[in-house]
Simulated assay, not measured.
Amino acid sequence: MTEWIEIGSIDAIPRRGSRCVNTPAGRIAVFRTQDDQIFAIENRCPHKQGPLSEGIVHGASVTCPLHNWVFDLATGQALGADEGKVRTYPIDVVEGRIFMAAELVMVAAE
Score class of each variant (00 low, 15 high):
1 M>W: 07
1 M>Y: 10
1 M>G: 15
2 T>A: 11
2 T>R: 12
4 W>K: 04
5 I>C: 08
6 E>L: 11
9 S>G: 13
9 S>C: 09
10 I>Y: 01
11 D>S: 15
12 A>Q: 11
16 R>I: 03
16 R>Y: 06
16 R>C: 10
17 G>N: 11
17 G>V: 06
17 G>I: 06
19 R>S: 06
20 C>D: 07
22 N>K: 14
25 A>E: 13
26 G>C: 11
26 G>A: 12
27 R>H: 07
27 R>G: 07
28 I>W: 02
28 I>Q: 02
29 A>F: 04
31 F>N: 00
31 F>P: 00
32 R>E: 00
32 R>A: 00
32 R>I: 01
32 R>C: 00
34 Q>R: 07
35 D>F: 12
36 D>N: 14
36 D>Y: 04
36 D>I: 06
37 Q>D: 06
37 Q>I: 01
37 Q>H: 09
38 I>G: 00
38 I>V: 15
38 I>Y: 00
39 F>V: 05
40 A>N: 07
40 A>P: 06
40 A>M: 08
40 A>T: 07
43 N>M: 05
43 N>F: 02
44 R>T: 13
44 R>H: 08
45 C>M: 09
49 Q>K: 12
49 Q>Y: 07
49 Q>N: 13
50 G>Y: 11
51 P>L: 08
51 P>Q: 13
52 L>Q: 00
52 L>Y: 00
52 L>E: 01
52 L>I: 03
54 E>Q: 15
54 E>G: 13
58 H>K: 12
58 H>I: 07
58 H>P: 01
59 G>R: 03
59 G>W: 02
60 A>P: 00
61 S>D: 08
63 T>Y: 02
63 T>Q: 14
64 C>Q: 02
64 C>S: 09
65 P>F: 03
66 L>Q: 07
66 L>A: 08
67 H>T: 14
69 W>S: 12
73 L>C: 06
73 L>H: 02
74 A>I: 05
74 A>H: 11
75 T>H: 11
76 G>M: 05
78 A>I: 07
78 A>K: 09
80 G>A: 10
81 A>Q: 15
82 D>L: 04
82 D>E: 15
85 K>H: 09
86 V>M: 09
87 R>P: 03
88 T>P: 04
89 Y>I: 07
89 Y>F: 15
90 P>D: 14
90 P>N: 13
91 I>Y: 01
91 I>N: 01
91 I>R: 01
92 D>Y: 05
93 V>M: 04
94 V>I: 10
94 V>F: 02
97 R>G: 01
97 R>Q: 11
98 I>Y: 02
98 I>N: 01
100 M>C: 13
100 M>D: 10
101 A>G: 10
102 A>Q: 14
102 A>D: 15
104 L>E: 08
104 L>P: 06
105 V>T: 06
105 V>D: 03
106 M>H: 08
107 V>T: 14
109 A>P: 04
109 A>M: 14
